[in-house]
C-alpha cells in the first residue's frame, strides 16, 4: 500500500517522451485521415475540362470548378431518391434495432431472468458475422425457391416475395437489425451493470414495480448511452453500402445507386468522375455530421433544457 494517493497526479518532466509515444498514431492520422479529407475537399472543387475532341494527351486538364460539383450533387434527382430510400430504411433500422437492444438490455438486467448468459452471447453473436456474409445468409433465406418463410407468406399472399419491390427495404433493414442489435444491447447492458444496486433497492422499498424501475430509473440512467449508440448508428446508416450492394445479385429491385454511397462508388469507379464523387462524399459526410449534432442538440434541450 502506498501512503499517499494523489489521483490527479501525472508523471511530470516528460520532455519529448509523450510526443514519441504519440508519433505513430499522429503519422497515421495525418497520412490516412487528414490528408485524404483534405484531398477529397480539393477534388470536390475541381473538374475536368475537355478541349477540342477530347482525344490525345493534353486535351483534358483539371481546372478549378468552385462549388459547381456541390450544386450538381444537391440538384441531382437520383441522389435525392437515394436519400429518401435511406431515410426510410434508416428510420426503420434505428428504431427497431435500438428498441430491441434496449428491451434486451433491460430484460438481461432483471433479477430473476434465466439462461441470461446464453441469450446474451447468442444475441451478440451476429456481431462476429461480416456484413457481406450476413446479407448473403438472409438473402438466401429470402429467395422464394429456398425460403423457409415462403410457405407461410403464401398463405396470406400468393405472390409473396421477400425480395420484391415493396418488401426489399424491410428485408434489408432486417439484416442490419440482426447484425447490430447485439452490440448495442451489450453497450446498454454494460452501462446498466455499472449502476449501484442500491438505486433499485431504494425504489423497491418505495414500492416501485420492476416495470416502473425500468421506465423511471433505468431508462433515465441509460440516456447518455442511448444517445451515444444512436449517434454511432446514425453515422453508419447514412453511409449504408454493404447490405444493398451484397443483396443486388439476388434481386433486380435494387439499383446501382440505391444509396448515396453506392452512387459515390459508381461515379468514382464506374463513371470515372472523381470530382462529383468527391463532392457527393463531402455532402454525405456533412449530412452525417449535421444529423448527429442536430440529434445531440435536440436531446440536450429536451433532457436538460427544462431544469
Amino acid at each position: 500500500m502506498t501512503g499517499t494517493k494523489r489521483s490527479g497526479a501525472r508523471v511530470a518532466r516528460a520532455g519529448a517522451a509523450p510526443y514519441l509515444f504519440l508519433a505513430p498514431a499522429v503519422v497515421l492520422f495525418v497520412l490516412f485521415m487528414a490528408l485524404p479529407i483534405g484531398y477529397t475537399i480539393y477534388l470536390s472543387l475541381r473538374r475536368t475540362q475537355v478541349s477540342g475532341l477530347g482525344l490525345g494527351r493534353g486535351s483534358r486538364r483539371e481546372v478549378f470548378a468552385g462549388l459547381d460539383n456541390y450544386a450538381a450533387a444537391i440538384g441531382d434527382a437520383e441522389l435525392w431518391l437515394g436519400w429518401l430510400r435511406v431515410l426510410g430504411y434508416g428510420a426503420l433500422v434505428l428504431t427497431v434495432m435500438l428498441g430491441l437492444a434496449l428491451i434486451f438490455a433491460l430484460m438481461l438486467d432483471t433479477a430473476h431472468v434465466r439462461l441470461a448468459r446464453f441469450s446474451r452471447i447468442a444475441i451478440f453473436l451476429p456481431y462476429a458475422v461480416p456484413g457481406v456474409a450476413a446479407t448473403l445468409l438472409w438473402g438466401f433465406l429470402y429467395l422464394p425457391s429456398l425460403s423457409p418463410f415462403q410457405g407461410l407468406l403464401e398463405l396470406f399472399d400468393g405472390e409473396a416475395n421477400l425480395l420484391g419491390a415493396g418488401t426489399v427495404v424491410y428485408s434489408m433493414a432486417n439484416v442490419a437489425v440482426w447484425g447490430g442489435v447485439g452490440f448495442n444491447m451489450l453497450v446498454l447492458y454494460t452501462t446498466l451493470r455499472a449502476v449501484p444496486r442500491e438505486y433499485y433497492e431504494a425504489a423497491r422499498i418505495d414500492g416501485a414495480t420492476e416495470l416502473q424501475i425500468a421506465l423511471r430509473v433505468k431508462i433515465p440512467l441509460l440516456t447518455p448511452a442511448i444517445i451515444l449508440t444512436t449517434v454511432f448508428s446514425l453515422i453508419a446508416t447514412v453511409q449504408v453500402f454493404t447490405e444493398p450492394t451484397a443483396l443486388r445479385p439476388l434481386t433486380n429491385t435494387i439499383g446501382s445507386t440505391w444509396s448515396p454511397l453506392m452512387k459515390v462508388y459508381r461515379d468514382a469507379f464506374v463513371a470515372g468522375d472523381l470530382y462529383s464523387a468527391a463532392a457527393t462524399a463531402i455532402v454525405i459526410a456533412g449530412i452525417a455530421l449535421v444529423l448527429s449534432f442536430g440529434f445531440l442538440r435536440i436531446v440536450k434541450n429536451r433532457a436538460f433544457g427544462e431544469g
Binding site: F29, P36, T40, F232, I235, A281, S292
Partner: peptide
C-alpha cells in the same frame, strides 16, 4: 476520427 464517415476516406485513400 470516430465521427468521420468511411466514405470520405476510402476514395481519396
Amino acid at each position: 476520427g470516430i465521427l468521420v464517415p468511411a466514405v470520405v476516406l476510402a476514395i481519396p485513400q
